[in-house]
């Protein structure tokens, strides 16, 4: 079984992200991490391989540092990876991104399953997976939290409002994985070893992690990046940080602390029950 998993490097939620003057995120400055939603997709892909055999290829689009998350994926057991990296991709919206990823998947060859995270924590659109499926002209299952392969069909349980729904479709298919699916297992010893091997051995690295640009994958540059993005960021508003005063009440018996807090009148009186 040929399995692809699409992953993305996003700004670390714990760190402060920089905003460019044009309102886009300054990805070079931001501390980076693997999109938390993609961890479920990664687990689903590895799970499919465990049960049905085959290979897992991780695919990412991003600037060169995105290789970090491909290493991370390999540490978790992914077999190989493709990094699409091209300056002309900067400022792509979901449509342009889905197009570029579609070209990458096409370049990567025939597949049975493509797993995507539900959404990313930077864009939060949840559109790329479905758009990719449309481009590939294959069925899509969104919000998947459990699945099995039954003869060349996938049977999947989807999360829907108020419950779940079980659907079935033929392979190949695109599946976006809900965050109620099993969490990503810890990295493996063999994977952690493989990463260090790749970091040492350049020839092996370029064989296992293929870095490609738009020309390699045969994508039309006009349909990528800012040019290929019909979405216009009209304005970005910076949410100001509220610098509050924090008083730490400590070092006294509990009753006195409670009295101190009440005396400071920071709690609305109607909420206080004595």
């Amino acid at each position: 079984m040929k399995i692809f998993v699409l992953i993305k490097q996003v700004p670390d939620q714990g760190a402060k992200a920089g905003i460019n003057p044009d309102g886009t995120i300054d990805r070079a400055k931001a501390k980076r991490m693997l999109n938390p939603f993609d961890r479920y997709a990664l687990e689903a892909a590895l799970h499919a391989r465990r049960l049905y055999g085959g290979t897992v290829t991780a695919i990412s689009m991003g600037p060169p540092p995105a290789i970090e998350i491909l290493y991370e994926a390999i540490a978790h057991g992914v077999d190989q990876a493709i990094l699409l990296s091209d300056r002309r991709l900067a400022a792509s919206d979901t449509l342009a991104t889905a197009y570029a990823l579609y070209c990458t998947v096409r370049y990567a060859g025939a597949f049975d399953l493509v797993f995507c995270g539900l959404q990313t924590t930077d864009g939060d659109t949840a559109q790329v997976g479905p758009q990719l499926a449309e481009r590939l002209q294959v069925p899509q299952i969104t919000y998947c939290e459990k699945f099995e392969i039954d003869h060349s069909e996938i049977v999947a349980r989807r999360v829907i409002e108020g419950g779940s729904q079980t659907v079935r479709c033929p392979l190949p298919a695109v599946v976006t994985v809900a965050n109620s699916a099993p969490r990503l297992a810890y990295k493996t010893l063999r994977g952690a070893r493989r990463v260090q091997q790749l970091q040492r051995d350049e020839a092996e690295r370029s064989r296992v992690i293929r870095t490609v640009n738009l020309d390699d994958i045969g994508a039309d540059p006009v349909r990528c990046g800012l040019k290929g993005s019909p979405t216009i960021v009209a304005a970005t508003e910076k949410v100001g940080e509220i610098g509050g005063n924090c008083t730490l009440y400590q070092g006294k018996p509990l009753q006195q602390l409670v009295d101190d807090v009440l005396a400071a009148q920071v709690i609305a009186p109607e909420l206080v029950k004595r």
Binding site: Y186, L189, A192
Partner: peptide
């Protein structure tokens, strides 16, 4: 270790 071609060193923090 990186500077040595005759030595392979793999570190496994977290294991």
């Amino acid at each position: 270790a990186k500077a040595l071609t005759n030595v392979v060193l793999d570190v496994f923090p977290g294991f």
